[in-house]
């Protein structure tokens, strides 16, 4: 890595040789650290999944247990529950780092803040979005989703949950320094989640009715790309503001 063109050169007062750390190493370093932290506090992984399962269970109890009826609302219920589970888990994205001061270290480091934010979002997706996506087909069985919908449900969640994590990171970054962030973050983030919800459920319903889903999936992919490029920058700028105020 020493010859990497994009590396940053930092001269250490105590060791005369040049220490260079590339932004890629900063990315993987943050990734490793965050994964280790999650591994040490495993309840953070399990709780959103439990929440997801319980919310889905409420619908048959609250509305109707009949299979024809549940089949119609299955896609929407699973998507809304995934949305809420992601939203509630966003609190943990920056809160812990804010409390122990490591967030400030990330902000004053010479690497682009967006790179580290992206790494943290990736960890968040790996521990909430990905398990949700894997769990969803199982819950879809309980909701009597017609067979044609499974692969599409899985694909839309696979592309949609990273978008949710990325957009949610902006809200988490804006509210990280504040007291009682939960309700405020819901107000900020849920309106921005609506397009993902519309195309996610739209694709599954199209698949169940035997229509083409490629268009829906393409738009979800486009939304993911836009979020991937812009959300880390916005979240980075928001973090700097939150730390000042």
């Amino acid at each position: 890595m020493a010859n990497d063109k994009h590396s940053l050169r930092v001269t250490d007062k105590y060791s005369p040789q040049v220490i260079s750390v590339s932004s890629w190493r900063a990315f993987t370093g943050t990734l490793k650290r965050d994964l280790l932290l999650v591994f040490r506090r495993r309840s953070d992984v399990v709780n959103p999944l439990l929440f997801f399962t319980i919310v889905v269970t409420l619908f048959p109890l609250g509305i109707s247990p009949e299979s024809e009826f549940l089949a119609q609302i299955a896609a929407g219920v699973l998507w809304v529950a995934a949305l809420l589970a992601t939203l509630l888990s966003l609190d943990s994205l920056f809160q812990q780092d804010m409390a122990d001061g490591s967030l400030e270290q990330l902000v004053i480091s010479p690497h682009p803040l967006a790179v580290m934010v992206l790494s943290k979002v990736l960890v968040h997706w790996l521990v909430t979005g990905l398990p949700l996506t894997l769990l969803a087909p199982l819950l879809a069985v309980m909701m009597f989703l017609p067979d044609e919908g499974y692969s599409t449900l899985f694909l839309t969640l696979l592309m949609g949950t990273p978008t949710l994590s990325l957009v949610g990171a902006i809200g988490a970054a804006l509210t990280v320094g504040l007291r009682r962030t939960g309700v405020l973050m819901t107000l900020l983030i849920l309106p921005l989640y609506i397009p993902v919800l519309i195309f996610g459920t739209g694709a599954v319903i199209s698949a169940v009715n035997g229509m083409a889903v490629a268009g829906h999936l393409a738009i979800m992919g486009a939304m993911l790309m836009v979020a991937l490029v812009m959300a880390p920058l916005a979240a980075g700028a928001a973090l700097r503001i939150s730390l000042n105020g």
Partner: peptide, 12 residues
Amino acid sequence: SGARASAILSLV
């Protein structure tokens, strides 16, 4: 800070 944070939110 409130003004800057809401500026980012309105741009998003």
